[in-house]
Design a protein around this nucleic acid. Sequence first.
DNA 1: GAGCCGTGGCC
DNA 2: TGGCCAAGGCT
Length: 366
Amino acid sequence: MPSPMALKKERSPAANTSPARPKLLLDWYDRHRRRLPWRAAPGETADPYRVWLSEIMLQQTTVKAVGPYFEKFVARWPDVTALGRASLDDVLRMWAGLGYYSRARNLYACAVAVARDHGGEFPDTEEGLRALPGIGPYTAAAIAAIAFDRRTMPVDGNIERVVSRLFAVEEELPQAKPLIRQLAATLLADSRAGDSAQALMDLGASICTPKKPACSLCPLNEDCAARAQATQETFPRKAPKKSGTLRRGAAFVVMRGDELLVRTRPEKGLLGGMTEVPGSDWLAGQDDKVAKEQAPELKGLSRWQRRLGVVTHVFTHFPLELVVYTARAEARTRAPEGMRWVAIATLADEALPNVMRKVIAHALDR
DNA sequence: GAGCCGTGGCC
DNA sequence: TGGCCAAGGCT
């Protein structure tokens, strides 16, 4: 008796790999491609540096959010060698607000490696790219296809959705990844691999959307297995994910005239290397009293005042609730070991993650 | 392999 | 409003 898994696989019409699809896709792309700052004009060669930079920024991040950051980066660092000569701190400051800060560290490490080990030229193979920091299987394939015309199909969340619908893949993610990768490769045209990939991404972004896909406008709607069953929105199949447990903590905002007391977080882990105001640990089930006890000790400090309300923030794997305390320090008060004073006016130049912007805004509010 | 790692926008 | 989602990688 066959296992349930085998039954599911048999039911996926993987054999339906119409050879007409790659051309349908490219024809659609030629008519409807999005114009994006990092994209080469039709027929022009893509700049590997811009492709790489955009791919790193676009990891788990929307096109809209990336736009201004991409422009800032290329204006300041026009090529990978220039970026490699920058300082990590400058890169983190420019990245502040985009999230997933280990990407910024790997971006910088990658630029240094390309400048030092590859003469300022990106490797032109998936394998070579894959060896660089911050470049995983998806990004390596994307750069290889888009910048170097290698015949490979990168598979991101967008393409997973399109493909799982097109073939009505019943297997759940992430187990279905190998099957989806295999099916996605059948959509590759004989040439213009990069355009095949970007066509699928554009299709996923504008037509084959997570909610209410516009199937009537889709160039592949004729033989989409999910549409034939009217089950488009149920793909891709995936197990529901559990939300994290609420953590609580306290943040301490100390003013010395027009200056604010800050410190730098440890290199690794959550918000690694970013700037923060001093605070307690962030723990599940911690009460305000315990958190308050972790306030920094300074001489000449006025009484702590608790701000009304809390600052809430939701990270990928847990929600956070911070109570905010404020105090004033006398002029010339020394910053404790590992901390420093920064002028409020120059706060915008700090590598401040958004949760800290919220805390400071809450503390300074009126 | 599964958990960790930000943020903003959407309905 | 809260859960989901976005051109994933690292450990």
